[in-house]
Design a protein around this nucleic acid. Structure first.
Length: 655
RNA sequence: GCCCGAGUAGCUCAGUUGGUCAGAGCAGCCGCCUUGUAAGCGGCAGGUCGUCGGUUCGAAUCCGACCUCGGGCUCCA
C-alpha cells in the first residue's frame, strides 16, 4: 500500500495510507483528537475533516478550543438556524449567515413581509435542537453556477450571490458564502437543506449544541440602506456548556454596568424628553466628576506645552465652505440659521476655529510646533437610531487639540503626542490599549507622496516605540491624511474607541496656512488633529461602565460620608468633616435620623469610597470606623490622622 | 433615517379575554423611634396610564399617526 506523509503543526511528520482523510489523521493521532476534531487546515486553507489528504500536505486539525474551531462551530450553527427557519416557514428565503464575534447571525426574508417574534425564536431553537439530535452529515458539493442557479431558483438572495461570485465581484461579506474558481460550492445536510458555502463545516450536526438564539433585528441586504430590510436572527455558540453559560453571565455583567442605568441611579445625568434625542443635562454629581476630569485634562495640557484657546459655537457658512465641511460633512451638521443676511452653522468640529487662531498673525518656524487646546463643544446631527446615552450624543465636548508643525517635526511630534495620550489614559485607570493605523486611500487623496510617507511612518514609529499592539487598515485613512485610532479595553475586556490622532494635509492648503522658514521663504505647516479622551461626555460614560459606577476616590463626587451613630455624635462628626474638607476632599454628613444600618446600606448602594461611622468611642479617642467600599468589614478605631493619610495616598495614586 | 420591540407616580415594576384596574416597593413629605455597621414603625401626598386622533355604551387595554427609549442596520467622538 502506498503511503503519504503529512506534516503536523509541531513540524513532525506522520505517514498514512494513501486516500486517508482528516478524520483518519485525527484518529491516528489520538482518540481525544478524533473526538474533538471539527475541521482541518491544509496548507493554511480551511478544509472539511473528511477531505482526502495528499502527500506533503501540511495539516492541522481544527478543534473547538481555538478561534478557528469556534468559527466553524458558529458557522455550522448558523446553517442549522437557516435550516430550521426554512423548514418552519413555507416561502421563507435566506440571505447570508456568517459567524461573528461570540456567535453568528442569519438574515431572512419571510413571506408577505412577516417578522419573527420572541415566541418564534423558541420554536426555531427547538427545531434546531431536533436537527442537532439527528446528527445530520454535512456534505460538500461543487457545481457549475448554472446548476446552482437552478437549485436556488426560489431564493433571490442566493441567486444574487451566485451571480456575483461567478462574475468575480465578491465582497468581503459574501466571501464565505460561495467559492469562486469557476464553480459554486454548497453544503447539504438532512433530507433537503442546502446552502451556499465555502465551508468548512463540522462533520455532522451532532457536533453542535451549546448555543442560544438571542434576538431579532432588522438588517439591510448587503448592508446597504437602499436595499430591502431583512430579518436578522442573532445567536451565540460555544464549544462547551460552561463557555456558553460564562458568556451569558458576561452579558448580565455588562448589563449591570450600563452607564445609562448607573447614571440615573447615581444621579449623574438625565435625558429629559423636552431637550430632544442625544441631549443630556448634567446633575451636580455628574458635573463634579466631569469637572475633575476636565480640570485634570487642563492641568496636563498646561504642563504638556499646549496653549489654551476658545471658540464660539456657530460660524458663518463661509468658514465651512473654506474648510470643506459643507462639501463632505454636510449631512452631519445641524441645519443653518439665517441672521442679518448671513447664514450660520453650529459647529460640528473645532478645527476651522483653531486654524483662524493660527492664521491671525504671521508665523515663524520658531513658533512651531504650536499646540492649541480647547474643550470644545460641537453639535452633530446623528441619525436618531444611532443616538446612545452619553456614548453617542448630538452635542458633546471634545478635548480637542490642533498641532501645527513643520514636516520635519512630524515624527518627533507624533511620538511625544502618543506618549502624552497614553500617559493621560493610564491615569484614568486604563492599561490595555490597541490601535489601528489607517494608511493612504487608493483613490483620490491630497498631499505629496513624501508627506504621506513621513506621516505614516511617523505614526508607525510612535506605535512601535510605545510597544502598542496595532493593526493596519491599508487604504483606510481619510483623503487628507493617515491616522491612528486607539481603543482602550475596559475592566471586562470591551473595547472603546477614545483617542484619534489624525494628520491633515488638506486644511492648511484650503486656508492657505504658512510659516516663514529659516530660508526666509513661506512654507505650509502640517496640521495634526487630536482628540484624547475623545468626547468628555462619552469618556464619562466609558468610565461609568469601566468602573461599574464605583469611581476611584479621586473621581468620586462624594469621597467620604460621615455617619454619626446617634444625634449626640453630630458635633464630633462636624469636626471630622471640617478636617477632611480642610484637606480639600469632598465629604458630607448623613445625620442620625435613620438607623445606622440603613444609612450604611444607602452609602454602599451609592458606592461612596469611605463611610466613616463615628460614635462614643471615636469621640473620646479621635478615631473613626472606616467602611471602605468593596469591603464588608468595617475597620474600627482608626485614628483620624491615619485615615487622612490613607485618603492622601489613595487620591494621590488615583486609585 | 430603516426594521423589530417598548412607553403606567421621581425610580423599578404589577395591571388576565376592553367593564370599581389606576396598584406595589423604593424615593419624597409628616409623625414616632435615638440608633455601632447593607432596608425600624406608622401616616400622607403623588399618575389625563408618552401625545393626538379613531373604534366602542365604555379604552391603560383594540386601531392609526406622531414623539421618546431599547436592540439591530447604516453611520460615528
Amino acid at each position: 500500500m502506498t503511503e503519504i506523509k503529512v506534516t503536523l503543526p509541531d513540524e513532525s511528520t506522520r505517514a498514512l495510507p494513501e486516500g486517508s482523510t482528516g478524520t483518519d489523521l485525527a484518529a491516528d493521532v489520538s482518540r481525544s483528537l478524533a473526538k474533538s476534531a471539527l475541521a482541518l487546515k491544509v496548507n493554511g486553507e480551511p478544509r472539511d475533516l473528511n477531505e482526502t489528504l495528499s502527500d506533503g500536505d501540511s495539516v492541522s486539525v481544527i478543534t473547538p478550543d481555538t478561534e478557528d474551531g469556534l468559527y466553524v462551530l458558529r458557522h455550522s450553527t448558523a446553517h442549522v438556524l437557516a435550516q430550521a427557519v426554512l423548514s418552519i416557514w413555507d416561502g421563507a428565503t435566506y440571505a447570508i449567515g456568517p459567524p461573528i464575534k461570540d456567535g453568528f447571525y442569519y438574515d431572512f426574508e419571510l413571506p408577505d413581509g412577516a417578522t419573527f417574534t420572541e415566541d418564534d425564536l423558541q420554536n426555531i431553537e427547538k427545531r434546531m435542537r431536533e436537527i442537532i439530535k439527528e446528527d445530520q452529515i454535512f456534505e460538500r458539493y461543487e457545481i457549475p453556477s448554472e446548476e446552482a442557479l437552478e437549485i436556488f431558483e426560489n431564493h433571490r438572495f442566493k441567486k444574487e450571490i451566485i451571480e456575483k461570485v461567478s462574475s468575480g465581484e465578491v465582497d468581503a461579506e459574501m466571501s464565505n458564502e460561495a467559492s469562486a474558481e469557476g464553480s459554486i460550492s454548497y453544503y447539504k445536510n438532512g433530507q433537503e437543506f442546502v446552502d451556499l458555502c465555502t465551508g468548512p463545516h463540522v462533520p455532522s450536526t451532532g457536533k453542535l449544541g451549546h448555543f442560544a438564539l438571542q434576538k431579532v433585528a432588522g438588517a439591510y441586504w448587503r448592508g446597504d440602506e437602499k436595499q430591502p430590510m431583512l430579518q436578522r436572527i442573532y445567536g451565540t455558540a460555544w464549544a462547551t456548556k460552561k463557555e456558553l453559560e460564562d458568556y451569558l453571565e458576561r452579558l448580565v455583567e455588562a448589563e449591570k454596568r450600563d452607564h445609562r442605568r448607573l447614571a440615573t441611579e447615581l444621579d449623574l445625568v438625565s435625558w429629559p424628553e423636552d431637550l430632544g434625542p442625544g441631549l443630556a443635562v448634567w446633575h451636580p454629581k455628574g458635573s463634579l466628576i466631569r469637572k475633575v476630569i476636565e480640570d485634570y485634562s487642563r492641568t496636563r495640557h498646561e504642563h504638556g506645552g499646549y496653549n489654551f484657546v476658545f471658540s464660539p459655537h456657530i460660524a458663518k457658512s463661509v468658514l465651512w465652505e473654506t474648510s470643506g465641511h459643507l462639501d463632505f460633512y454636510a449631512e452631519g451638521m445641524y441645519p443653518p440659521m439665517e441672521m442679518d443676511g448671513a447664514t450660520y452653522y453650529p459647529k460640528p468640529m473645532n478645527c476651522p476655529f483653531h486654524v483662524m487662531v493660527y492664521r491671525s498673525s504671521q508665523r515663524s518656524y520658531r513658533d512651531l510646533p504650536t499646540r492649541y487646546f480647547e474643550l470644545g463643544t460641537v453639535y452633530r446631527y446623528e441619525l436618531s437610531g444611532a443616538v446612545h446615552g452619553l456614548l453617542r450624543s448630538r452635542g458633546f465636548t471634545q478635548d480637542d487639540s490642533h498641532i501645527f508643525c513643520t514636516r520635519e517635526q512630524v515624527p518627533e511630534e507624533l511620538s511625544s503626542l502618543l506618549a502624552f495620550c497614553l500617559s493621560v489614559l493610564r491615569d484614568f485607570g486604563f492599561t490595555d490599549f490597541q490601535a489601528k493605523l489607517s494608511t493612504r486611500p487608493q483613490e483620490k487623496s491630497v498631499g505629496d507622496d513624501d508627506l504621506w510617507d513621513i506621516a505614516t511612518e511617523g505614526l508607525r514609529e510612535a506605535l512601535e516605540k510605545e510597544g502598542l499592539p496595532y493593526i493596519v487598515d491599508e487604504g483606510g485613512g481619510a483623503f487628507y491624511g493617515p491616522k491612528i485610532d486607539m481603543d482602550v479595553n475596559d475592566a471586562i475586556g470591551r473595547p472603546w474607541q477614545l483617542t484619534t490622532i489624525q494628520l491633515d494635509f488638506n486644511l492648511p492648503e484650503r486656508f492657505g496656512l504658512e510659516y516663514i522658514g529659516t530660508d526666509g521663504a513661506r512654507h505650509q505647516p502640517v496640521m495634526i488633529h487630536r482628540a484624547l479622551l475623545g468626547s468628555v461626555e462619552r469618556f464619562v460614560g466609558v468610565l461609568i461602565e469601566h468602573y461599574a459606577g464605583a469611581f476611584p476616590t479621586w473621581l468620586s463626587p462624594e469621597q467620604v460620608r460621615i455617619l454619626p451613630v446617634a444625634a449626640e455624635h453630630q458635633s464630633y462628626a462636624e469636626k471630622v468633616l471640617e478636617e477632611i474638607e480642610s484637606k480639600g476632599y469632598r465629604a458630607t454628613i448623613d445625620i442620625a435620623d435613620e438607623p445606622l444600618g440603613k444609612r450604611v446600606r444607602e452609602g454602599k448602594v451609592e458606592k461612596i469610597p469611605h463611610l466613616l461611622v463615628v460614635g462614643d468611642e471615636d469621640q473620646k479617642n479621635e478615631t473613626v470606623a472606616d467602611n471602605t467600599r468593596g469591603s464588608n468589614e468595617p475597620e474600627r478605631d482608626l485614628s483620624l490622622k491615619d485615615f487622612l493619610f490613607r485618603l492622601d495616598k489613595e487620591v494621590g495614586n488615583r486609585v
